[in-house]
Structure formats: C-alpha cells, structure tokens
Design a binder for these strands. Structure first.
Lengths: 103, 103
DNA sequence: TCTATAGTTCTATTATATTCGAACAATAGT
DNA sequence: ACTATTGTTCGAATATAATAGAACTATAGA
C-alpha cells in the first residue's frame, strides 16, 4: 500500500501556506477538513468540480504542508496538519480558520 | 493634492490578504512597514527592483487593504493598516508577521 | 479475472500574474 | 517655464496557475 510523500513541517515555507490558502476552493477544503475534525475522503469534500481539478488542489495543499493524505484501500483519507502547522507558524492557520468561518 | 483610493476594511476579503501575502516581495514590504512602525516612502523600501515592479506590488497591497498610501508632495507615504486588518481578521496579520520575522 | 471505485497523472486550453522599460503625471524648487 | 524627483500607468513579453476531459493506476469485491 504505497503512500503519498509529504513535506516535513521543517520544509514548509510560510509563503507556500499563504499561496495555498489564497485560493477560495482550497480554503474551502481546509475549512471543511477543520470543521469535520476527522479524516475525509476526496469524495466527501464535494465542491462540484471535476475529480482532476480537486486532485490538483489537494496536491497543492499537500505540498504546502497543510494536508496529509493517507491511502486506505481505494480511498484517500485527508486530514489537516493543524498541530504541526500551528507549532511551526503559531496562530497563522488557526486565525485564518477563525476569520474564514466567523460569518 | 489628489489621494489614492483605498478599499474600506469592510470590502476587504480574507483571500485578498492571503493572495497579497503569498508573494515573497510583498510579504517583505509588509514586514519592512511593520518593523519601521512608521510611514515609509516607496523609495525607502529598496528591494532592488524597478520602480514599475514595486509600484505593481504596492497596488496589490493597497487593493488587499493591507497598505495605505498617502500622497505628500512628490512622495507616497505608505503604512500598514495593521489595526484595521486585525480588527476584521483578528490574529491573521499579526501571526503572519510573527511567523515571517521569527528567524 | 473481470468490474467497479477512488484518485492521480497527462495534456491541452485558457486565464491570471510577474516583470520591467518607456512614457506619463504631479509636485517642488529654481 | 524649466528641471529634478517620485511614483504611476501603459504595453508587451514571459511565467505560472486553474480548469477539466481522457487515460491511467491501485485496490476491493464478486
């Protein structure tokens, strides 16, 4: 069961995170993962876009260090790397999540 | 003395701010303004780039609601809209600034 | 082995951003 | 009025990103 490679938290740059969160679709994915508080498959995050588009956004979220994807069978289980990101960039992701969900 | 138009803080979107801060040059400008703690002219923010490039980045920072530019004579005095941005998106900009300057 | 499912990768298209020289605009000083 | 200074705007080249259909991969189950 080959797994996807992720960057270590040390390798993650702040501007990567900013860039990843600057796209409304990706911010929405991050919000849904945060609100779910558990692993979600790509299919459970339905934003009415083709699979290839969603896959593209997940790839960017992964390379930014925001999302971890574990392969379980045919499904890809996604979760937010909240604690890790918070420990490297304290307050950044949590403040963005609060700001994005406060309405 | 005609002044530049800025968005009100209500008009500013979170993704605009994320987008503006995702560019290393613009993040650097924001950091310099924060560290200066006072108004700086474009010329004082020397990142070794042509005027037209810097002007472009300032325009994006302004439209994102991050920077206010007041024209005084031939100079354009720039300042961070830190308090306003903090009040609309608490913790976001301050956390980014801390994360970006902590090394 | 055949089929269905879940996502990725490939490829091309289109859209958006960055960069920067050159021309321009506004002001200040002489 | 002329000149220098400061920064913007224009325009064009280049680079990067978003979108999505089609082909592909990997696993699970019958």
């Amino acid at each position: 069961m080959r797994q996807i490679k992720h960057p270590t938290i040390e390798q993650v740059e702040l501007t990567d995170i900013m860039y990843a969160l600057a796209d409304p679709t990706r911010l929405e994915i991050v919000i849904l993962l945060a609100q779910a508080g558990k692993k979600l498959t790509c299919g459970e995050i339905n934003l009415n876009r083709p699979k290839s588009s969603m896959s593209h956004h997940f790839k960017i979220l992964r390379s930014a260090g925001l999302v971890e994807t574990l392969i379980e069978g045919t499904e890809h289980m996604n979760s937010l790397r909240l604690e890790e990101v918070e420990s490297k960039f304290p307050g950044v992701l949590s403040a963005v999540l609060k700001a994005a969900t406060k309405d």
